[in-house]
Amino acid sequence: MCLSVPAKVIEIYADEWRAKVDYLGSAKTVGIGMLDEVRPDQYVLVHAGEAIQIIDEQSALESLHYWKEVLEL
């Protein structure tokens, strides 16, 4: 089974293949090469260090709520 966690895009790096994201309160660098036109303030699903899908804010926030509950954050 594979899991992905929503992350908010903070910054797109100049190489346009990587982005800084807020990943459950931590800043992480993830690959964005599999997605078209990722922009700051969008939410993406991250799996194994790669953004695999752009998702809407409401879905991301709902999912983050459950992740925080499970992880007791």
Rank of each mutant, 00 (worst) to 15 (best):
M34H: 12
V44Q: 05
D36K: 14
C2S: 12
L64W: 03
Y43V: 09
M34K: 14
L3C: 09
P40K: 03
D15M: 15
S4I: 07
H65Q: 15
I54E: 11
A19S: 05
K68V: 05
E50Q: 12
L35I: 08
R18M: 12
Y43S: 09
K8H: 01
C2D: 14
A48C: 14
V70P: 00
Y66M: 10
G25N: 02
S26N: 06
A7D: 07
E11P: 03
L24K: 00
A27G: 00
A19N: 08
M1F: 11
K28P: 00
Y13S: 13
A51D: 04
R18P: 00
L35Q: 08
M34Y: 14
V70Y: 09
K28M: 11
A48V: 14
Y43Q: 10
V44W: 02
Y43W: 13
V5A: 11
Q58G: 00
Y13L: 15
A7H: 04
P6K: 04
I10H: 01
P6H: 02
R18S: 12
V44F: 05
P40Q: 03
V70E: 13
P6R: 01
H47P: 02
A14W: 11
I12R: 07
Q53R: 06
Q53D: 09
V30P: 02
G25M: 02
V38Y: 00
M34L: 15
E72V: 07
K20S: 09
K28F: 07
E57Y: 03
V46F: 04
V44S: 09
K68G: 04
I32S: 09
M34F: 14
R39P: 00
L3Y: 10
H47M: 15
V9A: 01
I12H: 08
